[in-house]
Design a protein around this nucleic acid. Structure first.
Lengths: 262, 262
DNA sequence: GCTCGATTGCGTACGCTATACGCAGTTCTA
DNA sequence: TAGAACTGCGTATAGCGTACGCAATCGAGC
């Protein structure tokens, strides 16, 4: 399920130099290693066109409607033709995800402190998800290896370059923030999609109140009474709240390392 | 896609009292409202048995293998029989998720401070996910309304009862931690599943090193050199790291409210 | 006790999915 | 010019969720 390897399908890109062992063929393709052999009829498509068509379909009809047949139709080719470029639907999704991320913002640890840098980074990821809501439905089943994914990782580490954090802690921090942004984006997207013109949040408070038995649930009842469950303009504030809390937590860790010595 | 309502299918439970408007029928069923009418043949199954069979299948074969046919087979009934108890597969998943959560730990704000309480809460959710890894693959497409879900929400709010946080902030905190735990659990499960006896983390560092072009990526190269990408015993530490950071962030917010006045 | 309608389990059917396999046509190399 | 390599893609398979309708069953009202 995780690492398809050793497959000898047509889409594995049977280049001349030996493919790095353990490296998914689709990743080699994405990094531009592995040139095509010269013999045979000219190809009618490119990997980029296939991926772009997939994104097009996902954008307009959602990732649920994305099928190989639908993508092939978009390109005006037969369904099975796609398998000359991509060895499985999973590969297509992996590439679509990496493409959707785009390039990370330029981060210069000399010009911005870690907090500004990580904020910029988080907002960049959020913007990418906002541009490509379908990417939230693509399960992340392997460590990030696509070119854009790796570039984003580099950017996050660079933002923390001037902190006293250990490399391990920098990675953990990146993982924490990356997961947070994905979660918050998913929540926002779900809430926006769930409400078909109607707000769901006001309803949620009402529904809860109706469900609760007469006794018990004092804390929840207090929350309902406060109206906190009825405001739905705070969906965006949720992101800021969470990010501030996490960054404050990182700041506390950095302070443990002692006074700043730049 | 989000709110199925108004459907007049058999599984909607055509009780005598009017179903609360806007409340998904499956939720009424889960809370035990809505009694069955008396006429007609006795039912051969119960909703609980259907849900339990679903969990059984998901546990042993993964949620990917969970189909209505498979669940029906497990119960020794025809596939379509299930639709007398559940109006769609989504309903089954919703109920399975709520059941998998189980009851939250008892939290008494008088006996534990908010930090202990929230830690207990987070570890409880993590344990539930560890017991039911399949639940991580069930997309959360609606605000939590199941009985167990609501009980967990109450528990989280109760843990924060003695803090100066606003109700809004308590909810945001709960959302933040809940999302974090789900994320971290997913990561752990993916890593554990991806490695079929082989560790993936050591490979990841190697793979990255092989992918990177000769120039650029200084920060990432430093991380690789440090060996931080090669240790895979830190998968569990990731959870502790993230939770500590988040709780520190909440602590900072609480301190902004001024000195403690118990 | 009998009838009638509500409710049951479930067989059949439909449209959809991913993709394995193999064939015919194209194009470059020797 | 021969042959090998590679192309697009038609066909076929096994599986999915679920709409529909029918025969059997059971309780309520007379």
């Amino acid at each position: 399920m995780a690492g398809r390897e050793g497959g000898s399908g047509p889409a594995d890109g049977a280049g001349e130099q030996p493919a790095p062992p353990g490296l998914p063929p689709i990743i080699s393709l994405a990094w531009g290693l592995q040139q095509r052999p010269a013999r045979g009829p000219r190809r009618g498509l490119t990997l980029e066109r296939v991926v772009a068509a997939g994104i097009e379909v996902a954008l307009t009809e959602g990732v649920g409607a994305l099928s190989m047949a639908r993508v092939a139709n978009e390109l005006g080719v037969g369904t099975m033709s796609l398998y000359r470029y991509v060895s499985a639907k999973d590969d297509l999704l992996t590439l679509m995800f990496d493409t959707a991320l785009g390039r990370p913002p330029a981060i210069d640890p000399a010009a911005q402190d870690w907090r500004e840098g990580l904020t910029l980074w988080a907002e960049g990821v959020r913007a990418a998800y906002r541009r490509n809501p379908w990417a939230l439905r693509v399960p992340i089943s392997a460590p990030p290896l696509g070119p854009n994914n790796v570039a984003w990782l580099e950017a996050a580490l660079r933002a923390q370059a001037n902190t006293p954090l250990s490399e391990q802690e920098k990675l953990s921090t990146t993982l924490l923030i990356s997961g947070f942004v994905r979660n918050e984006s998913t929540l926002t997207a779900d809430l926006a999609a769930g409400a078909g013109g109607e707000q769901v949040m006001p309803k949620y408070g009402e529904l809860l109140a109706r469900l609760l038995p007469d006794s018990g649930f004092p804390a929840l009842r207090r929350a309902i009474a406060s109206g906190a469950l009825s405001d739905d303009d705070d969906i965006d504030n949720e992101f800021d709240f969470g990010l501030l809390r996490i960054l404050d937590g990182i700041a506390a860790l950095i302070e443990e390392y002692g006074p700043v010595t730049p």
